[in-house]
Design a binder for these strands. Structure first.
Lengths: 251, 251
DNA sequence: AAGTGGTCTAGACCACGTA
DNA sequence: ACGTGGTCTAGACCACTTT
């Protein structure tokens, strides 16, 4: 019987139970990239003999990570490491295009207005777990759908980690940030917390969105977290309030 | 070994598995009121002998209902039927009071502006599973916090079921609807789906909320469901858009 | 046919809450 | 001390997917 280190690692609610410790060890393998996104993890029976426990215990450990959204079980095929968020989910807050009932899943085109290294505001630095005055990347984007400007985004990223993006030519950015964070910086965004409030647009913002000055807008504030649970992005997104729609399920 | 009816009953995703069927049977007991909200259900071991299955199978059945939000397990004490929603959760969408960081949990005072029987709009009747032209209860409320009007609510209820409310004097309504639905009509609200959009107030609404005409407002559309999964309430809530705040967790 | 996860059994001992 | 749910074992057979 091997009975390894407790390994409280990150966010996994690890009590002292066997399956909790195993779950933490499996999570470590995912976080360290030993089991990359999309890959299948060893079969339950294999893990059971490896860890020297009963099958049911391994199943319980896997259930924890499935619940956390890190793993996905597929009957008859295996258990797979989930890919991170793509970032396309931002559109779920807005209902652009004709309300033909069809949920909009199209990815809006991204136009990078600016991208430069800055000294991070105190609160953002703290969010990233950095010291006050630490450097970060500040990105400003405008996003288009159906040849109309729809969203304005201000994005902050921690700078030692996201340095590769600084040297990347704008032409190679593409329309989605998270795949870029994965390929260039090795950061997998796995969870995000969004907060929605309402504001009005100032003159500059209104002009960029081709809306009247003072027009009401929805402001979505996003904190995105990597596999280790560290915040790796702070983002403000603004769009026409009248195009805003959000659905919440309350149990 | 007893192997009772399949009992697909309501929303429980009942495949053909043993624990699925047992989950459906347990749910039936809750829905029928045999196990009322707050009560403890029999111990796992008791249920296991009653159903003639292994303990683990019962545990799996209970897990399904816990996931659905119908049951709650408490270590060392037992497994309990959860109380329905209180309705106080509407306030989680708004941040009134000074932004002292403290989440507002206070229940706003309810002022009933009107309450009368009407012919339901086609779409609402369909939502309730009633024929077009069926009757319903239409309620208009204004809700106060800190001696200021904060929210306007329009509520529709299906009428054969909610008849007791029609005869109830306004003085006895109190501030929350759902406890009233439970005590007067035997309806337990167990789940709700909210949708948030953005509007502006018309003159009448603005006056009632003591805001300027045309002021931006958030509109929350709610469909509330009872234990059987039938819709038992349709509600529109409007409040100052600049006091609106909603947080969403994306995994 | 072989391998995977899904279901199920019949036990055991532990941790927690209450009396 | 007792009853509850929480953890764990060492098997078994089934359903699904791929070779």
């Amino acid at each position: 019987m091997q009975d390894n280190d407790p390994l409280p690692s990150t966010a996994t609610a690890v009590g002292v139970s066997r399956y909790g410790r195993i779950a933490a060890q499996l999570q470590r393998k995912i976080v360290d990239g030993e089991w990359p996104p999309g890959a299948a993890i060893p079969a339950e029976s294999t893990l059971a003999t490896e860890f020297g426990t009963a099958l049911g215990t391994i199943r319980q450990a896997i259930a924890v990570l499935v619940q956390e959204g890190l793993l996905e079980r597929v009957q008859g095929k295996g258990t797979f490491v989930r890919n991170g968020l793509t970032g396309a989910s931002m559109m779920r807050f807005f209902r652009f295009r004709a309300d033909a009932g069809a949920p909009v899943v199209a990815i809006p085109r991204s136009e990078i207005l600016s991208c430069r290294a800055v000294r991070l505001e105190k609160s953002i630095a703290a969010l990233f777990g950095l010291d006050t005055g630490a450097r970060g990347l500040a990105i400003s984007r405008r996003r288009w759908l159906d040849d109309k400007p729809r969203l304005l985004e201000s994005i902050w990223l921690p700078l030692p980690r996201c340095e590769p993006l600084q040297r990347l030519p704008k032409a190679e950015w593409g329309d989605l940030l998270y795949p870029l964070l994965a390929s260039q910086c090795g950061i997998t965004i796995h969870r995000a917390v969004d907060e929605v409030t309402f504001r009005t647009l100032d003159a500059d913002q209104a002009e960029l969105l081709e809306l009247p000055d003072g027009h009401p807008c929805a402001l979505v504030t996003r904190r995105a977290y990597d596999l280790q649970g560290n915040c790796a992005e702070y983002r403000l997104t603004q769009g026409d309030a009248y195009a805003f729609r959000y659905q919440a399920d309350i149990r």
